[in-house]
């Protein structure tokens, strides 16, 4: 089933400080990555979508049903993995999943089979009967995402999913997310660009002014940045001098005191170094840094 999430003019403030300003977007099934600097309101947006915070104005509709009703939040249709996921250390993984299943008020007759399937899907067989306090960071994160997908929700919210995981665990986690996003809208808040590049279908960037600055695909962001990124080969000894002239976004060491640099041409002085050429391969990280830099100009 194709799900649809519609967010309209969300505003949230703490005291007089605005955390989210007129935030609107639409999305369907797939992985949507939410990027932005620290403190721009990523977690606030996730908490509003999860029904934990209530916005000052705006609306959120999941398949045309309001998520912001004061009276009820459809927990059976949503899954949430908070940034700092933890559970009582003396509770077993299975007891925890069983609690979530019951709280979501899913059919009791399917419980055993559904939980067994989830345990297998997330390769938790080894630890599921152990106490959560004995879980490694990777297993805890896996259990966290497993509880979020109980009941096959239409909307899954994952806040900073790969923080604290080693590279191998991050790869495994990416695979899990890709799998679950086939049938649901999966919104991931992160600042790890590498993760976004590998698995996200859509990208949203929250600017420092707390508004939605970019809403598109990874390729669209790269295309936006490409004309403004230049590449040059310079002598290693000139690096500090060059740094004062242009905004370097990537350095690559070459032989004989040479360094290949990628830099942003569009800056306050608009300096272009000698022998510069257009960057052919722009990574998402390059594009993201350009985008953040362009915002500050």
């Amino acid at each position: 089933m194709q799900n649809q999430l519609r967010v309209q003019n969300l505003c949230y403030q703490i005291g007089k400080r605005e955390i989210l300003k007129n935030f609107s977007f639409n999305c369907t099934n797939g992985i949507i990555a939410l990027l932005g600097n620290n403190g721009v309101g990523k977690s606030t947006l996730m908490n509003i979508l999860a029904g934990i915070l209530y916005p000052h104005s705006g609306e959120v509709y999941l398949n045309e049903e309001s998520l912001l009703s004061h009276r009820s939040y459809p927990i059976e249709k949503a899954g949430y993995l908070p940034q700092m996921f933890d559970m009582y250390h003396n509770v077993t993984g299975y007891d925890f999943l069983s609690y979530v299943y019951d709280v979501k008020k899913l059919p009791p007759q399917d419980k055993k089979q559904h939980l067994q399937q989830i345990v297998e899907d997330f390769s938790l067989q080894e630890v599921i009967r152990k106490k959560i306090g004995k879980y490694s960071g990777g297993y805890k994160r896996r259990l966290g995402i497993a509880q979020a997908v109980i009941g096959h929700p239409d909307l899954i919210l994952v806040d900073e999913p790969t923080v604290g995981l080693d590279p191998e665990q991050r790869i495994a986690f990416r695979e899990l997310l890709s799998r679950i996003s086939l049938h649901s809208i999966t919104i991931i808040s992160t600042h790890i660009i590498e993760d976004v590049e590998l698995y996200s279908d859509k990208l949203m960037i929250i600017g420092n002014d707390h508004t939605l600055q970019f809403d598109g695909t990874v390729n669209e962001l790269i295309d936006l940045a490409k004309p403004h990124l230049l590449m040059a080969v310079i002598d290693k000894r000139e690096l500090n001098e060059v740094r004062n002239k242009v905004h370097i976004i990537e350095e690559k060491r070459m032989a004989d005191h040479l360094i290949q640099i990628k830099y942003i041409s569009r800056n306050k002085t608009a300096t272009v170094l000698d022998n510069s050429c257009q960057v052919r391969e722009v990574s998402l990280e390059n594009a993201y840094i350009y985008f953040q830099h362009a915002q500050n100009l």
């Binding site: 939040y73 908070p82 559970m87 009582y88």
Partner: peptide, 19 residues
Amino acid sequence: LPDYKEKIYVFFQFYTDKT
């Protein structure tokens, strides 16, 4: 104590479907 020490309260807030 663990609810606030380990931030488990966030999880329970999410799983509160009523007021």
